[in-house]
Design a protein around this nucleic acid. Sequence first.
DNA 1: ACCGCCGGGTGCC
DNA 2: ACCGCCGGGTGCC
Length: 963
Amino acid sequence: MQSNFSRSSVLPHTPSISASPRYAFIDFLDLGRAETISQEIANLTEDAAQDQETEESREIGYIQGTVVGLRYYSGVVNRGEMVSLVREPQNPYDRNAVVVANVYGSQVGHIRKELAAAVAYIMDNKLARVEGIVPYGETNKFSMPVNLSFLGKEENREAVHNHMRRHGFRLGTDLKGGNAQTSFGRDPLGSSSQISAIPLTAEELKNAFDKLFDDLMEDKTREMEPAEAVCTPLLPHQKQALSWMTSRENSSDLPPFWEQKGGLYFNVLTNFAVKERPEKVLGGILADDMGLGKTLTTIALIVSNFHNGKPLPLEKCGESSEPSTSRKKSASKGKGGEISEEVVESSPLKRSHVDGGSADTVEKDADKDLPRKKAKTKKKTSKKSANTKEVILLDDDDFATALECSSKQVMPPKKNVKKKSGADKGSPAGTRGSGARATLIVCPLSVLSNWLDQFEQHMRADVTLNVYLYYGAERNRSVSFLAGQDVVLTTYNVLSSDFGNKASSPLHKVNWLRVVLDEGHVVRNPSALQSKAVLELQSERRWILSGTPIQNSLKDLYMLLSFLKLKPFDVKEWWSRIIQRPVTMGDRVGLQNLQALVKGITLRRTKTSKVNGRTVVQLPNRSVFVQHVTLSEEEKEEYEQVKTEGRNIIDRYFQEGSVMTNYADVLAILVRLRQYCCHHSLVGKYTGGADPVTPSELRERLINKITLVLNSGSDEECAICLDSLRQPVITYCAHVFCRPCICEVIRSEKEQAKCPLCRAQIKTKELVEYPEEEVETGSVTGEKWRSSSKVDALMNNLLKLRNEDPTVKSLVVSQFTKFLDILEVPLREYGFAFTRLDGTMTQKARVKAIQDLQDSSPGSPTIMLLSLKAGGVGLNLTTASRVFLMDPAWNPAAEDQCVDRCHRLGQSRDVVITKFIVKDSVEENMVKIQKKKQELVAKAFGTKNPPDRKQAKLQEVKQQFEF
DNA sequence: ACCGCCGGGTGCC
DNA sequence: ACCGCCGGGTGCC
């Protein structure tokens, strides 16, 4: 029996206080899961959206209606199938028309006009969302019943009911408070079990969620040897991953939740059936922990599974028809921007072949089995300059056919061609031997060089794998060139900037064999340009590599499923209805489905996972020490001064209720305090103050603010794409975004465009750019040098360490690049050799910095100055075994990630981490708040902050600023 | 639709 | 018959 729980007991809803600016400020400091404050803001706005969604998802009424006109449409539904209702105001017969569509988006019919007339108003005015389920009558020829649920805010309940009543419809209401899915029509088959009616508690949910990605390796223990071309022996868990990935790519199984029934394909979750076989999902998520070798495994996959577990045919270096010249060519094509020619040239593997070269290969192979193909290949060769899609498809088809022949899998080539050229962007997958050859790897800039290194390191020297680095101003944009590579490597930024310039995005014109998203969790906001760019890629197989596939919300997974094209979850409505809403409501069946879903497409091992009874990776110990630093009297005095100054300003904002609008200033104050803890000369001039009067004053003020944000060294992120700021601009309301991101927002919202952070009106022409050349560095070193307590503490450690063991290498990590500048002075003074890696460096310089550190000859650098986020993940710094974290980060995960760069596979020494924390300062408070936050966060997932938590936070912040 | 509805044909029993 | 009744044509919005 359904228990009499009220929904609010399951889903604690946000108290209304969140509207007050004072509390909004408290939320600023909900830093438990944010790496930067602007990310925190993004989290907040996300939460706001989620609030709305959860509130709207309350069922406020239901009614049975009729779907009519079935015989005019091809869309079919099944008993109990969910359908979506879409307004069709442009319908020539009735502007109130409401279309009923099935999960695949095919129209089933219309809602009968009388009911449509009533419902249209409710939909148009967003009084409620309307969802439908067809309870029976699925075989009817002319009409069928549909159960409509109205989901909306409680405050709209009456308006909705009244409106419907005026049209002569009486909505039913489920007073028991069961959720929308179970109360009505959800389970017309009567199979609902009592278990599913008892919702999960927030804690159970959180636990289940934490375990969601645990131990996803049962039945995935078969091993596969990589192709010969891979020279690095794979560890057992890597062979398992290779085997699993290969089977995922060659699988002809139906995607998860699909079954074949009679002549139809049936989705057991939505009860949806189609005649056409659902598109295969070739690929998935490799979610191994950092350091387990996702990169190597992926390389092995690329080389070992071209088709059906057969290796990618590669030329032997010696047999190459055009020896050294081609490499030159690749270099000149690949150069430009910050990626140097040398990077490309330095690798013996990277030899981008020219069109003619590949044609030769094909002919050679094709000649053996299928001479008649030769003519065609010839024809194509003569046509190679014509750079049209059609030609490329034919090219690729020849490739494939040739290759298929060698593996005795001849397909009628004619048919293939037809299929291909007829296929628009719809379904390139599934057509075996469609000709796709190239794998596209998209990764953050920070790991680009790692990929290149690893290709070089793991590929046998005598084979040629064509890896093309699609990066830099001079990148080769020829579609046929790109399609002919074995691997194309690029970054999310290049991909989305190409995509943004609608004119042409070559990467979107290639039919890839495989697309790999490295650190795939970075695309998680579906509205960000880079997400759209990623979703539009055409590929047969798709992979996501990520150590943390879900960061803090179930919604992160939506983006991933959407990329994998896992029907029907790639459409938001179905994802929400089938998974997200049920799960957040504590529905057990929903959770089971989610678990099954994840299990079916994910492989994840942690460092503690066992293979054949042994842990996957045995890493040396790692220990963390916190060293408290006491400020000198002089420093203390100055610190208090900075603090009082800041407190007065924040206090004023509180009184004015303008904390939100002065976001940049609040950020600045916090940053200043943290900077002071490191070194006095980090602290810049405060630029806030009296209200600006003239536009030029405002402009100047904004330029100051954006400069401050960007130079604070905290590596601020764009709240829209959550990536590092690219072409940063500041709005009149003083929030900083990437120009492409905010322009996209303005473009899509038109005149109503609002700032995503404060909802102020924004316009494209009111965006202020960051003045490019204004880099005022080095000034620190000029004046008379004065140390700081923290600098002294570090130097003591380093000197002691050098005494004890001069071979030990250290990472010195700070969030403030300027602090790294400062640290260079005493390091030089004491004769330390060091390198440096920060976000402002070119790719080339980064590579050199890492190589220098790896050098073990006497006199080589023993220290790397590292900015916390510059390296990003994936960076391999195992030559270092000591880590000094100079200043605490808001998000402990960022610190962990940084430490993991040296505490990973390949580390031979025990790793010792020292964290410097200034006593009685903002830093100490940060650590305290962090800890509390972690405890609280551990309790609930997917639900919002309970009120007492907010209250607690209020106290903490009051403490922090001593209000 | 093995219905309802419309509109033309028809008209005692 | 300015009706009722019959039976054919017809059918989403």
